[in-house]
């Protein structure tokens, strides 16, 4: 039971991170980003290549990987998303799906479909009250918590407030001297780094394959839905809850029920409380 919950919290913190990245882009630029997980998958593979191929230490490879993640997101935002942002919402969502496909294909072409494992310095485990806890699990949950707190603090800074203003209305903030370009670039850059962390944690605790992105993307969206898409805390708690629920279902119902939990969670939450467990009600476009 406790073992299941602990591994659930670990997987849940990856979902939380993905949900945080999704919510960050959505809050700032109002784009549900279906390419979010792939934007972390490519840099995670780069980290693997740096450690395994170039024999770099983890402490050096990870910052390089984060920079690659940031650069990739900024480039995608600039070249694929921003030119069509003025057109309509529909096109932007589809463009993120196209970006997803392109990055995934590139990862497959460069690294193949063979599963990899990122070597990390957090091997080993310790025992608390009879429960074995791996350091890797502790690192995952701590990273998720740190990113959440960081984002809450960030949204209180002037740039963070500008971001939320731009999400509500792209015209008025500009009249007040807010650079919409800076806001977009910053949110995508941050989200790219967070997605990289999510894929990195998954890649060093379990395995890294070209399929990790799509799996984590759906979990991230489910977690964000649970959290209502507007709340940072909600997205974080939603991810943890999803991870724990999945692991408990996998252990006590059947292995195959694990996948069903995510969809079930979406249907139930949207039916009972459509704004998510932590969301605010809002009607747009009057």
């Amino acid at each position: 039971m406790w073992q299941q919950i602990i591994s659930g919290l670990q997987a849940g913190s990856w979902y939380s991170l993905m949900a945080l990245a999704i919510v960050l882009v959505l809050k700032a630029t109002d784009v549900p980003n279906f390419a979010m997980a792939e934007l972390g998958l490519f840099p995670a593979f780069c980290i693997w290549a740096l450690i395994d191929g170039a024999n770099l230490s983890w402490w050096l490879a990870v910052p390089i990987g984060l920079l690659i993640g940031i650069a990739l997101s900024v480039v995608v935002e600039r070249t694929a998303i921003r030119p069509i942002l003025a057109e309509n919402h529909f096109a932007t969502v589809l463009m993120t799906i196209a970006v997803f496909v392109v990055i995934n294909a590139i990862v497959q072409l460069v690294w193949g479909s063979e599963p990899r494992k990122i070597d990390s310095p957090f091997a080993g485990s310790f025992t608390v009250a009879g429960q074995v806890v791996a350091y890797e699990q502790l690192v995952s949950v701590a990273a998720g918590l740190a990113v959440m707190v960081g984002l809450i603090l960030f949204f209180r800074t002037p740039l963070g407030v500008q971001m939320q203003a731009v999400a509500e209305d792209r015209v008025t903030p500009r009249l007040l001297g807010v650079s919409v370009t800076t806001v977009f670039r910053t949110s995508w850059a941050l989200a790219g780094a967070i997605a990289t962390i999510a894929l990195l944690l998954q890649g060093q605790a379990s395995l890294l394959t070209d399929q990790n992105g799509s799996g984590l993307l759906i979990k991230g969206f489910v977690a964000a839905t649970l959290g209502g898409f507007s709340s940072i805390t909600g997205a974080f708690v939603g991810g943890l809850a999803l991870g724990v629920a999945e692991n408990l279902a996998g252990a006590y119902i059947s292995t195959s029920s694990k996948t069903a939990i995510a969809l079930l969670a979406i249907v139930v939450v949207l039916s009972i409380k459509p704004q998510g467990l932590f969301g605010r009600h809002q009607v747009r476009e009057v």
Binding site: P32, I218, P274
Partner: peptide
Amino acid sequence: PATRLRGFYLAIATLA
């Protein structure tokens, strides 16, 4: 559930 909400909820529910 999804059609009661903004467009992209349906995208997520259908992808799942």
